[in-house]
Design a protein around this nucleic acid. Structure first.
Length: 358
DNA sequence: AATCCGGGGAG
DNA sequence: CTCCCAGGATT
């Protein structure tokens, strides 16, 4: 670990640089812990450019913890539509209700109480408490993992347990006595804007002279590349069942992907042949209670969900008849095509909905 | 320690 | 195409 002199120079350089480089982001307008919390949850595994618009709409709809707690979960999910990792939205909502129930509706000040809220781990608790309250809490996330790994010339995979232990320790060790809020944000800003994954701008870096990777001319090799994800190809089919101006939607159950969101009835099939074999129609009947033939293809959408590369064929159902099956955990409803914007849909569901509206 | 969870930006 | 992103929860 670096000594006190190194630390002081590091802190001074970081803070001086940030004073002139801080971007004007919506969640930096004030230090309201509620807004900072919302931004931190949205920013989990999601880029700043993507979050901007969502953040503005979300805090406009729910300006306070109490507003969020009082909202319907469906409305929260609707505002989250397209952001992904929908568990974040449900946990955000649950946390707001917990704050109302246990903290009189005021966002807690104590680190451990913040950490105890659903959806908040060590990073997010540290970020909120340092940014909003100037608490002496370290942070470690994508930007600072890369930044610190380079500063320390750490050549192992910094996302593994040993690397995490080292980098959390470093993050705590370099924390200044004051201005923690600016300091932590500055570290992330530096990682995001200067110490980038590819082609970092070391010439513009305020701590280049303190950087181990730079000294070893190993900036391009650090951090070590993560092991490549192996993707599994998957074939799925979405069925569009029309009834006059309505279409059949299904709400995803709590145990499945996109829990709480609505989608067109969707099936995993082994091969293209299953579309014709009657196997799909049989599954469709078991799921919905309706009898129908698989009709013409409307479109094909390719997308990825974690380790799956999904090819989604979207087909019309023809001659649907029968009575809808009752399903408590995954309700089926007939939705007016003109009212599909009132439902929180998965991104693929929204693409299909847009197709039907034409 | 591994795995799951989404979607999009950017090269 | 591939890599990556202000991670957390679960197993």
């Amino acid at each position: 670990m670096p000594d006190a002199a190194w630390r002081r120079k590091f802190q001074r350089q970081i803070l001086a640089w940030y004073a002139g480089a801080a971007r004007d982001l919506p969640w930096r307008a004030n230090r309201d812990p509620y807004r900072i919390w919302i931004s931190e949850i949205m920013l989990q595994q999601t880029q700043v450019a993507t979050v901007r618009g969502y953040f503005q709409r979300f805090v406009a709809a729910f300006p306070t913890v109490a507003d969020l707690a009082a909202a319907e979960e469906a409305e929260v999910l609707r505002l989250w539509e397209g952001l992904g990792y929908y568990r974040r939205a449900r946990q955000l909502h649950a946390a707001a209700q917990k704050i109302v129930a246990e903290h009189e509706g005021r966002f807690p000040r104590d680190f451990d109480q913040v950490l105890a809220l659903p959806g908040i781990g060590r990073y997010t608790a540290g970020a909120i408490c340092s940014i909003a309250y100037d608490a002496a809490a370290p942070i470690l996330e994508a930007n600072t993992i890369r930044l610190h790994a380079r500063l320390l010339a750490y050549r192992e995979d910094p996302t593994k347990t040993a690397g995490q232990r080292l980098l959390w320790s470093f993050a705590e060790h370099v924390l200044p006595d004051s201005d923690i809020s600016s300091f932590n944000q500055a570290l992330m800003e530096l990682g995001s804007e200067i110490c980038t994954p590819r082609n970092p701008q070391c010439e513009a870096c305020p701590v280049a002279t303190l950087c181990g990777a730079r000294r070893q001319q190993a900036v391009a090799e650090i951090p070590a590349p993560k092991k490549k994800m192996k993707y599994e190809d998957r074939l799925e089919v979405a069925i569009v069942v029309r009834r006059k101006k309505e279409v059949l939607l299904r709400q995803c159950g709590p145990e499945e992907r996109w829990a709480g969101l609505w989608d067109f009835p969707r099936f995993h099939v082994a091969s293209e042949a299953d579309l014709l074999s009657g196997e799909l129609a049989s599954q469709f009947h078991a799921r919905t209670g309706l009898s129908a033939a698989i009709g013409s293809r409307l479109t094909t959408i390719k997308h990825g969900v974690t380790r799956y590369r999904i090819t989604l064929h979207c087909h019309e159902a023809e001659g649907a008849s029968g009575r809808l099956r009752k399903d408590e955990t995954a309700p089926l409803v007939w939705a007016s095509v003109d009212k599909l914007h009132d439902f929180a849909l998965s991104t693929t569901g929204r693409k299909i909905a847009r197709l039907l509206a034409k």
